[in-house]
Write a protein that binds this DNA or RNA. Structure first.
Lengths: 219, 219
DNA sequence: CGACCTGTTGATTCTGCTCAATCAACGTGG
DNA sequence: CCACGTTGATTGAGCAGAATCAACAGGTCG
């Protein structure tokens, strides 16, 4: 079991490990291979306002990219899972902050040419943009049930399963991702369960029983 | 006055004009200079699902980038004003559609190198991403008044004024941009007016009387 | 003039939030 | 081993903010 660490600790306590396996995607051959750091849960990878620089790749675990309002409300823009890349910014400062959700391995990608990773980076940035645009529709125009169904279907796709979802984040994170409260997340899951669409074997597992019905909620 | 055209007409009826002024920004010197097309209001520039290809630059007027849910609810992701560039996509198909809001001049930018506009395009894509991320926080975690105040302040910045806003879009567009109904937009504007923060000389003009108070709503 | 469109305003409804109690899982310390 | 505290999840009751439904006003165009 993971040792739950204090919430807002910084990356200083990450444990850098000299793991350098050769299985890095071809896209990223341009970057200098770097060690993987292992972070415990709820550790800050970079903070809002911090100087932006390197890119990061998730080796295992889950990362959340967040923003806060002045009075502390939080919006999670995206979750990143194994194999995904994050950390690019328009300006020279991070306007979002990145944290680990659970125990997570992160590889730093330092471009070895001054102008960055070039074409590969553009393609990744455009994918991020597409994902953000998808999410705008969800946040702006969907009901709680539609948001939740969209989220579950997205997880199914990204975890490459049509039945068993491992939920690495907790209700609070899901709520802040979908623009809801954690109570509403809980209630909607119950509705889906009562409708026979899902099962909840444990708190962190969701078994999808009727993917078609979930799909029909989103339409 | 503009001639209001039918809603979902396609770009076939755009009037291509052979205007080729030399004032194109340095960033875009890589693109073949093209003619400017003049569109009337509410014309489709590209449709959802259509093959993505060229970039577009707004010469004058306003463009909205939209998505629809299956049952017709609309989310406007961004508005684009003069000088701004839009039209890039992650895949080979447009996942959003672009329409003119009012009479608008659009220059098509066809990259003359096969891999596109390169570094310049990355920088533009990252700005779009940053804008989308800002908007996620607005849609997910702000109240109607906060959304509206954020929108007005954003318009002030982008129109480079701290008093007189020319509102090129109508209430319905603002609502679909902020994830509200047009009635709510109307009501919130009235609240701001009654509070002495703004004046509404005409339906399409907003004079900001107390920018500090607007700012304090957003915090 | 009448038809239509956009915007404003009012009345009512309802979705999702707030506040609060309870429960289960887990760890700690006597 | 059990009492206790903590944390995350569930559930309930009541409320509030925004949506919906509806009426109406002002402007434009045929």
């Amino acid at each position: 079991m993971l040792i739950q660490a204090n919430f807002h600790d910084h990356m200083g306590d990450a444990v850098p490990l000299p793991i350098c396996d050769a299985g890095v995607p071809a896209l990223l051959a341009l970057a200098r291979p770097c060690a993987v750091s292992i972070y415990q849960a709820n550790k800050v990878i970079y903070a809002q306002g911090e100087a932006a620089g390197p890119l990061y790749m998730v080796e295992f675990g889950t990362v959340r990219i967040c923003r806060l309002t002045a009075d502390g409300r939080r919006q999670i823009n995206t979750f990143h899972f194994a194999g995904e890349i994050f950390g690019f910014e328009a300006g020279d400062k991070h306007q979002c902050y990145a944290e680990t959700v659970n125990q997570t391995g992160i590889r730093v990608l330092r471009p070895n040419s001054p102008e960055g990773l070039g074409t590969g980076m553009l393609s990744i940035a455009l994918k991020s943009l597409a994902r953000a645009q998808d999410h705008l529709l969800v946040l702006g125009r969907m009901t709680a049930a539609e948001k939740m169904a969209t989220f579950l279907l997205d997880l199914c796709e990204r975890q490459d399963t049509d039945r068993f979802i491992e939920l690495s984040m907790q209700r609070n994170d899901v709520a802040d991702y979908l623009g809801l409260t954690f109570e509403t997340v809980s209630r909607v899951l119950r509705v889906f369960k009562d409708a026979g669409m899902i099962r909840l074997p444990t708190v962190n597992q969701i078994e999808v029983l009727d993917i078609a019905s979930l799909g029909s909620i989103v339409e």
